[in-house]
């Protein structure tokens, strides 16, 4: 009985979302507000138990998660205070006089992540790509790939006007980009259609038992 009720609720919400295809209406509004509200509450709990409790609350207040003591006996527990305080500083924007303090947290957060990302990006997206594209020009495929790469890199060169040879190469690059986008578009549409099939199957099989 419970299964039937939940399946019916799921089916009604699915139909409410699909009603958007006709036009905006109260059913869609209800489904939209429901999912936004539920997800806000859901993520609050997820963030607390996955990040705040194990990384800040537990080390500072010597709590336990399961049988494992978090932070007990650790002399570095105070390190957990740093992200905790930085997080709290974000709330200073509620006090206009001290709102600027919250920028410190943002600055550390953005700067830290940018710095951490530099070396891996240079390695994975530049160096390894250089190595992978230094191909022997012994096949049509390799020649094609190198021409496409050269054209695409030229298209994204902003320091000179795209005229003359640069213009021709940039045009070649944009052709390669568009061919790639077309292939990607078709591939993704296929996967979206499979999602639609899943929903229709839910409605006709799980809910109505017609198929």
């Amino acid at each position: 009985m419970a299964t039937i009720i939940w399946t019916t609720i799921g089916a009604i919400l699915t139909l409410s979302v699909y009603s958007f295809l006709y036009k905006d209406n109260p059913f869609y509004k209800f489904a939209e507000h429901l999912v936004v509200g539920i997800s806000a509450g859901y993520y609050l709990v997820i963030y607390y138990f996955n990040f705040i409790q194990p990384n800040v609350v537990a080390p500072v207040f010597l709590l336990r998660i399961g049988n494992e003591a978090i932070g007990l006996g650790s002399s570095m527990w105070w390190l957990a205070l740093i992200p905790g305080i930085l997080g709290l500083l974000l709330y200073t924007r509620f006090f206009p006089k001290f709102g600027w303090v919250g920028r410190w947290s943002l600055g550390i957060y953005v700067g830290g992540y940018a710095g951490l990302g530099l070396s891996p990006i240079m390695q994975a997206r530049v160096l390894n790509q250089i190595g992978a594209n230094a191909l022997p020009l012994t096949s049509i495929t390799n020649v094609f790939l190198i021409v496409g790469l050269l054209g695409t890199l030229t298209y994204f060169f902003f320091s000179m006007k795209h005229k003359g040879v640069l213009g021709v190469l940039a045009r070649v690059g944009i052709v390669f980009l568009m061919v790639g986008f077309g292939a990607s578009f078709g591939y993704t549409v296929m996967s979206r259609v499979s999602l639609l099939i899943g929903r229709v199957s839910f409605l006709l099989h799980d809910w109505l038992h017609l198929i």
Binding site: Q123, V126, L127, N128, Q129, I130, G131, A132, N133, A134, L135, P136, L137, I146, L149, L150, L153
Partner: peptide, 25 residues
Amino acid sequence: SIALIAAGIIARAVGLESFVAWFQT
């Protein structure tokens, strides 16, 4: 990057694989 790729292609052609391997970290 384009210059290094060109150098890598030439290096491969003359058998200097170690030059290309330098980029494969």
